[in-house]
C-alpha cells in the first residue's frame, strides 16, 4: 500500500515541511524480552539474539539478555545455543540445518527462571528460474541516478498464501542487512503466475564498482505470521504516525509470554548473476520475441 499513499504525500509535500522537535513521551515499564532468531535450511551457525525493550529516546544500545538457556528443536533433533562471548547473541553449532516440512520450536529459559517459546513451520520453497539485470536511469522525478535492476524469473505455485523474502549479496557482502532493505512479498496479487522480469532488487550504481560483480539473490519461504510481523515492523518503524497511515499499533509477535520479536523458519534457494560495470550485457532484450 505504501506506494499509493506516497502519491498523496507527494502532493502534500509540495508545501509541507518538517522539523525535529523535543517531545516528552510516557516512559513506563520498558523491560520486555525481545527475541530475534531464525532457522533456515542453510547449513551454518544459526543465531538467536536476546535483548530488552527500553525508553524510546534512550539513544543507546538496548540491554542484552545474558545467561539464558536456549534450544531449537524439531520432532527428531534438538540444537542448543550458547553465548560464549556474552553479547546476548546465542549461536548453534556450525553444522545445524533445518529441514523443509518440519515445525521448529525455540525454547528460552532466562536466568530468573522465566520461560518463553515460539514455533514456526519451515515451508518448502522451489528454485528460481533465472536472474537478469539492466543498467538504467531512475524512473523518479529529479533523480538523475542510474541503477542496476536485478530481474527475477520464477513460477509462483498455485497454492494461496505463499510469502517470500529475498536477500541480496554483492560480491559476498550481505547488502539487505536490515529489514527495511529487504524485499518481502505475498502472492496475493500474483498467485500461480509465471513471474518474469520482476525487479526484485534495484541497486544504486555506487554499489557496483568492479568490472565484474557477483550478485547473489537468496529466496526464502516465510510464514504468514512472519510476513505480517516484518511488514508491520517496517510500517511502524518507518511509516507510522502520518495522517495517511492507520493508527499506530504494536508489532505482532510469535513469542509467548508477552515477549516481543520473532522466531522464523525458512527454506532457502539461491542464484547468482554477474553484473558488469555500467553495462547491459545480460539484460533481457528478448521481450519482442514474445509478441505474436
Amino acid at each position: 500500500m505504501k506506494i499509493y499513499y506516497t502519491i498523496f504525500i507527494i502532493i502534500l509535500i509540495i508545501s509541507s515541511c518538517t522539523e525535529v522537535i523535543d517531545l516528552e513521551l510516557n516512559t513506563s515499564e520498558n523491560n520486555k524480552l525481545v527475541v530475534e532468531g531464525s532457522i533456515t535450511t542453510e547449513q551454518k551457525s544459526h543465531t538467536v539474539k536476546l535483548s530488552r525493550t527500553t525508553d524510546y529516546f534512550s539513544n543507546q544500545a538496548t540491554p542484552k539478555e545474558l545467561g539464558a538457556k536456549l534450544s531449537i528443536s524439531d520432532d527428531e533433533n534438538i540444537f542448543y545455543l550458547t553465548d560464549d562471548d556474552n553479547d546476548g547473541i546465542y549461536i548453534t553449532d556450525e553444522n545445524v540445518k533445518g529441514q523443509a516440512g518440519k515445525t521448529y520450536r525455540l525454547d528460552i529459559e532466562l536466568e530468573n527462571g522465566e520461560k518463553y517459546f515460539a514455533e514456526s513451520f519451515l515451508k518448502p520453497i522451489f528454485p528460481m528460474d533465472s536472474l537478469k539485470y539492466e543498467y538504467k536511469k531512475s524512473d523518479f522525478p529529479f533523480d538523475e541516478n542510474y541503477y542496476y535492476s536485478i530481474y527475477l524469473y520464477v513460477q509462483e505455485p498455485p497454492s494461496i498464501g505463499d510469502y517470500y523474502q529475498w536477500e541480496l549479496y554483492i560480491n559476498g557482502i550481505h547488502d539487505s542487512d536490515t529489514l527495511r532493505n529487504k524485499t518481502i512479498v505475498s502472492d496475493e496479487m500474483v498467485n500461480g503466475v509465471y513471474i518474469s522480469k520482476w525487479p526484485v532488487y534495484v541497486i544504486p550504481d555506487y554499489k557496483i564498482l568492479n568490472d565484474t560483480n557477483m550478485v547473489k539473490i537468496q529466496m526464502l519461504s516465510i510464514s504468514k505470521e512472519a510476513y505480517d510481523f516484518e511488514l508491520a515492523l517496517i510500517l511502524e518503524t518507518d511509516y507510522s504516525g502520518s495522517n495517511f497511515s492507520g493508527p499506530p499499533a504494536n508489532i505482532p509477535t510469535n513469542i509467548s509470554n508477552g515477549a516481543l520479536g520473532f522466531f522464523s523458519a525458512s527454506d532457502i534457494v539461491e542464484d547468482s548473476i554477474e553484473v558488469y560495470y555500467k553495462k547491459n550485457v545480460n539484460s533481457n532484450k528478448k521481450i519482442s520475441s514474445k509478441l505474436k
Binding site: D55, T178, E236, T237, P247, P248
Partner: peptide, 25 residues
Amino acid sequence: PRTMPTGRFEYEGMISPVYSDRNSV
C-alpha cells in the same frame, strides 16, 4: 490525541516503537 511510542526495541538493526495506550499523547 495520537498514539506515540513509549518504548523501543531493536530488531535487525531497526529501532522499532512500542506503544501503550491508544491516543494518550
